[in-house]
């Protein structure tokens, strides 16, 4: 008699197959290819093993580390600006008593657009000749020059941050607003009676309660921003002359333009460390903040 496979194995098999096909095999393949000089234009290179050559090359590549540093900087600025703006917006919307539902919906509009379109929009807005910003500045007589918003390194970085913040501040606003809705009113009133000024109430009561929500938003957004690609690609393409190069624009250029897929995959594995570190950091903070307000870690 033919031996039958155990039932649990048969039942799990479809899931195994799907996960293997969609996640596991590509992952192993990309990891393997990062140890080869794989070029898309010369498929045979896939079978040449070069060991850690790609990784060594990355470690000494100034362009890679510049992009790495720029991504960390970008991440830091974007997260902090979004936190501050989102917190402010959430606190204000929370005070609105009439039309709050509508306002909340409007708040989410920027998230509904494709990042590509947002990129094109801001590319136009910041264009130095026909762009909205320069037009306004010149009409108001603030400057008579055409400011190179997307060409100058600093200004271009600012423009990209601006677009990113415009699109995603509502993630913070919505999550913090959810926190404000969940917040019990009694401790706020108790603080008021205990002698707190509105600022002290916010600082000592509201903010500790909101911290878990803030860290959830931070975790989501850090993963999001660490893989920032579309807006940057559209607005500046990482240029001019790599002045706005982030990890993912560098990787896509290396992989698809230069066709050096092995090297690009190695870069991917190094830069994933960044995401993992941020996630671990924010999850730690999240647990601590939850424990702080008496929730289970």
């Amino acid at each position: 008699m033919r031996r039958r496979l155990p039932e649990w194995f048969v039942l799990l098999l479809p899931a195994f197959i799907v996960i293997a096909a969609v996640v596991l095999i590509p992952l192993i393949f990309s990891l393997y290819s990062s140890f080869t000089p794989y070029k898309l234009t010369r498929p045979s290179t896939l079978w040449r093993w070069v060991g850690t050559y790609n990784y060594q090359k990355i470690l000494t590549d100034a362009n890679f580390w510049a992009a790495f540093g720029r991504t960390v900087l970008f991440l830091t600025i974007v997260l902090n600006v979004e936190l501050l703006l989102g917190l402010g917006i959430a606190l204000m919307v929370n005070r609105v008593t009439w039309g709050q539902r509508t306002l909340r919906t409007i708040l989410m509009f920027p998230m509904m657009f494709s990042p590509i379109l947002v990129g094109f929009q801001f590319k136009f807005i910041f264009n130095d000749n026909v762009g909205l910003v320069n037009n306004v500045l010149q009409s108001l007589g603030i400057t008579d020059m055409a400011l190179p918003w997307l060409v100058d390194g600093r200004l271009a970085m600012f423009s990209i941050v601006f677009a990113e913040v415009w699109m995603s501040t509502s993630v913070f606003a919505i999550l913090i607003l959810a926190g404000l809705f969940a917040m019990p009113r009694d401790p706020l009133e108790a603080a008021e009676v205990d002698g707190c000024t509105p600022w002290q109430t916010f600082r000592h009561i509201t903010l500790p309660f909101l911290m878990p929500f803030i860290y959830i938003a931070m975790t989501i957004r850090s993963l999001d921003v660490a893989r920032a690609y579309d807006i940057v690609q559209i607005m500046t393409g990482g240029g001019p002359a790599r002045r706005t190069e982030l990890l993912w624009t560098l990787m896509s250029r290396t992989g698809y333009v230069d066709a050096r897929m092995g090297l690009a995959n190695a870069m991917g594995y190094v830069s994933i460390i960044l995401s993992i570190l941020f996630t671990i950091y924010f999850f730690r903070k999240l647990s601590a903040a939850r424990a702080e307000i008496g929730l289970e870690g």
């Binding site: 019990p184 108790a190 008021e192 009676v193 009561i205 309660f209």
Partner: peptide
């Protein structure tokens, strides 16, 4: 309220969840 020099005990206690008992007591 803070200028009325009153204290209030609430139905749901209204303790500050992120503070210890000592900090709760001393907060004001």
């Amino acid at each position: 309220p803070r200028e009325r020099n009153i204290s209030m005990v609430f139905q749901n206690y209204a303790l500050y969840p992120h503070m210890t008992v000592r900090e709760n007591l001393g907060f004001s």
